[in-house]
Every structure is written in structure tokens, then in C-alpha cells.
Measured scan of single mutants.
Amino acid sequence: MQGVVKVNSALNMRSGPGSNYGVIGTLRNNDKVEIIKEVDGWYEIRFNGKVGSASKSYITIVN
């Protein structure tokens, strides 16, 4: 499943599904990500070869 980031500035990509996990990357508006699965309001995603988590509130699913 594919998604597109929708933010005003930037979205942190984290090492796990929650804001208490470390930041491993930064996503910008309109970045395209691969959604692997949903976990507690977060998506596990793949972006630029990295796997991490980002809040699903800022990612829109595209077909």
C-alpha cells in the first residue's frame, strides 16, 4: 500500500510506533512512502530504504 505525507513542514520518522521512540529520519510534504502495516495509530513505513514509523494522521493512502 502506498501513502503520501501531508504536513506543513516536516514529519519525524521514528524507530517505533510512538513519540517516545528515537527519530531516524524526516519526511517532507508530498513524500511518497510504502505502508507496511498499522500499529496503534501509527504506520510502519518504508522510505528511502529505511523502515520506521510515522503517525497515520499525516499520511494519506493512495491507490
Rank of each mutant, 00 (worst) to 15 (best):
K32F: 12
G52Q: 02
I61W: 04
E34M: 10
G25D: 12
D31Y: 06
D40R: 09
D40E: 11
S9A: 11
K6H: 12
P17R: 04
N20Y: 10
N8R: 13
G22Q: 14
K32C: 13
P17E: 03
L11H: 05
K32N: 09
N30C: 13
K56L: 06
R14S: 04
W42I: 00
V39R: 07
V62M: 11
G41P: 01
K6I: 11
Y58A: 12
N8K: 15
V62P: 07
N8I: 12
I59V: 07
S19W: 15
V7N: 07
N30V: 02
K37Q: 11
R28Y: 13
S9R: 14
V62Q: 09
V62R: 06
G25T: 09
Y43H: 00
Q2R: 12
W42M: 02
G52H: 02
K56E: 04
S9I: 12
S55G: 10
N63E: 13
I35M: 02
D40I: 05
S57N: 13
N8W: 10
G18K: 02
S15T: 08
W42P: 00
S19Q: 13
Y21Q: 03
N29M: 09
G52A: 06
G41S: 07
G49T: 04
T60Y: 14
T60H: 14
Q2D: 08
L27T: 00
N30Y: 08
I45N: 00
S57R: 15
Y58V: 07
S9K: 14
R28A: 10
V4F: 07
P17I: 03
G49E: 07
G41N: 08
N63M: 12
V33K: 00
N48P: 02
N30W: 09
G49P: 02
N29Y: 09
E34A: 08
F47I: 08
S15E: 11
R28E: 09
A54W: 04
A54E: 02
S9Q: 12
V39S: 09
M1C: 15
V4H: 05
V62W: 07
I24R: 03
S53A: 14
S53T: 10
G22K: 14
G18M: 01
V4I: 13
S19G: 10
I61L: 11
N12P: 15
Y58W: 09
N30Q: 08
G3C: 10
V23N: 03
T60I: 14
M1K: 12
W42T: 01
A54K: 01
D31H: 04
N29D: 09
N20T: 10
G52E: 02
I59P: 02
I35R: 00
K32W: 12
I59Q: 00
E38I: 07
L27Y: 00
G3E: 02
V4M: 09
T60E: 14
T60M: 13
S9F: 13
P17F: 05
Y43A: 01
I35A: 00
D31M: 06
Q2T: 13
G25N: 05
S57I: 14
I36M: 10
F47Y: 10
S15F: 06
Y58Q: 09
N48D: 11
P17S: 05
N48S: 07
Y43K: 00
V7S: 13
V33L: 04
N29A: 09
N12E: 15
N63R: 11
I24A: 03
S55I: 14
G25M: 09
D31W: 05
N20S: 12
I59C: 05
E38F: 05
I35V: 11
M13N: 01
G3V: 05
Y43S: 01
L11P: 01
I45G: 00
R28D: 06
K37G: 15
I61P: 09
A10Y: 15
Y43R: 01
T26H: 10
G16R: 03
P17C: 08
E34W: 14
S9C: 15
Q2V: 14
M1L: 13
K6D: 05
D40L: 08
L11V: 15
S15I: 07
L27D: 00
I35H: 01
N12V: 15
D40Q: 09
I36H: 03
V4D: 02
Q2Y: 15
S55K: 15
G22V: 12
G16I: 03
I24C: 08
E34T: 11
K50H: 09
E44R: 07
A54H: 03
R46C: 12
D31F: 06
A10Q: 13
N20K: 11
K32S: 09
L27R: 01
I36E: 02
V51Y: 10
N30R: 08
V5W: 00
G41K: 05
V39E: 09
N29W: 08
N63L: 12
E38N: 03
D31K: 03
I36A: 03
L27W: 01
M1T: 11
G16L: 03
N29R: 09
L27E: 00
A10R: 14
Y43E: 00
I59E: 01
V23A: 05
V5D: 01
S19R: 13
K50M: 14
K6T: 12
E38H: 05
G16D: 00
N63W: 11
G41I: 04
E38Q: 07
K32R: 14
N20L: 07
V4S: 04
L11T: 11
G25F: 08
S19E: 15
S9T: 13
G52C: 06
K37W: 07
Y21K: 03
R14K: 04
Q2L: 14
E34K: 06
A54F: 05
A54M: 07
V62I: 13
K56H: 05
G49V: 04
E44H: 08
G25A: 13
R14T: 06
A54N: 02
K56W: 04
P17W: 03
S53R: 05
V39A: 08
K37A: 13
T26C: 13
A10V: 15
I35P: 01
G52W: 04
L11R: 06
V62H: 08
V51R: 09
Y43F: 10
M1W: 13
V23Y: 05
R46S: 10
V23P: 05
V23H: 04
K37P: 01
V5R: 01
E38A: 07
K56Y: 04
G18A: 04
G22Y: 08
I59Y: 00
N48G: 10
A10K: 13
Q2M: 15
G3Y: 05
W42V: 01
T26S: 09
R28C: 14
I59K: 00
V33N: 01
R46K: 11
M1H: 10
V51W: 07
V39M: 10
Y58C: 14
R28I: 09
S15M: 08
V33P: 01
E38L: 08
V62F: 09
W42D: 01
R28M: 12
E38T: 05
V7A: 11
I24W: 01
V5F: 01
D40C: 11
I36G: 02
K37Y: 08
V5G: 04
